[in-house]
Simulated assay, not measured.
Amino acid sequence: MMARPQEQRRLWTPEEDDRLIEFKRNYPYRPWPGTADLAGLDRSDKSCWERWKNHLKSGVNKENFSEEEDDIIIRIQRTEHRNEWAFMAKEYLQGRTANAIKNRWNNHLEKMLTNISDVGRYLLTDDETSDHSAREDEDDVTSVVAEYASLI
């Protein structure tokens, strides 16, 4: 059985963004089902929700990731909170969306760390045994976050 061909996704236009922003300004607590039709958009409700949550909502940080933010993501990946993107966004990287953090990990950081020279920075070394083990100490993440916060 062949997979159904994937629909071509259209880019959002500035006019569509403006319509969605205006709609959310006028009806901030309206549930998402029916939003696309009521806002006059030829989009799915899910598409409108994702556009709002990941791009248009105030407070979303769309700047490039800093080295400190990359460090936080990498160190959290070494804890029991691995791949908990919403947790990272809420607890450590306010202003970043879970989707942006996930994309940063999957499309850049994980690939970067496959290069052995980059991995050493995120490993602890036991001089006696020369045993390398991934950092799993959540206090380590907290100290990086505190250090990053002091720079802002």
Score class of each variant (00 low, 15 high):
residue 11 L to S: 13
residue 11 L to P: 11
residue 12 W to P: 07
residue 12 W to N: 04
residue 13 T to Q: 15
residue 13 T to D: 14
residue 14 P to V: 06
residue 17 D to P: 01
residue 19 R to A: 10
residue 22 E to Y: 08
residue 22 E to F: 07
residue 24 K to W: 09
residue 25 R to A: 12
residue 25 R to M: 07
residue 26 N to R: 14
residue 32 W to M: 11
residue 32 W to Y: 11
residue 32 W to S: 07
residue 33 P to Y: 08
residue 34 G to L: 05
residue 36 A to I: 06
residue 38 L to M: 07
residue 38 L to T: 05
residue 39 A to M: 03
residue 43 R to M: 09
residue 43 R to E: 11
residue 46 K to H: 10
residue 47 S to Y: 03
residue 47 S to K: 01
residue 48 C to M: 05
residue 49 W to S: 13
residue 51 R to D: 07
residue 51 R to T: 07
residue 57 K to R: 11
residue 61 N to Y: 12
residue 63 E to W: 05
residue 66 S to I: 01
residue 67 E to W: 00
residue 69 E to P: 01
residue 69 E to L: 00
residue 70 D to S: 01
residue 75 R to M: 08
residue 76 I to V: 15
residue 78 R to D: 05
residue 80 E to W: 09
residue 80 E to G: 13
residue 82 R to S: 13
residue 84 E to F: 12
residue 86 A to S: 11
residue 95 G to V: 00
residue 98 A to L: 09
residue 99 N to Y: 15
residue 99 N to K: 15
residue 100 A to N: 04
residue 100 A to G: 10
residue 101 I to S: 08
residue 102 K to D: 13
residue 104 R to Q: 14
residue 105 W to M: 01
residue 105 W to S: 02
residue 107 N to S: 05
residue 107 N to V: 00
residue 109 L to M: 02
residue 112 M to I: 07
residue 113 L to S: 12
residue 113 L to M: 14
residue 115 N to R: 08
residue 115 N to V: 10
residue 116 I to A: 14
residue 116 I to R: 13
residue 117 S to K: 13
residue 120 G to E: 06
residue 124 L to Q: 06
residue 125 T to N: 08
residue 126 D to M: 04
residue 127 D to M: 02
residue 131 D to M: 08
residue 132 H to T: 09
residue 132 H to N: 12
residue 132 H to C: 11
residue 132 H to S: 12
residue 136 E to Q: 14
residue 136 E to N: 14
residue 139 D to F: 15
residue 139 D to Y: 15
residue 140 D to R: 00
residue 142 T to N: 06
residue 142 T to L: 05
residue 143 S to M: 10
residue 147 E to Y: 12
residue 148 Y to L: 07
residue 148 Y to F: 13
residue 149 A to F: 09
residue 149 A to L: 12
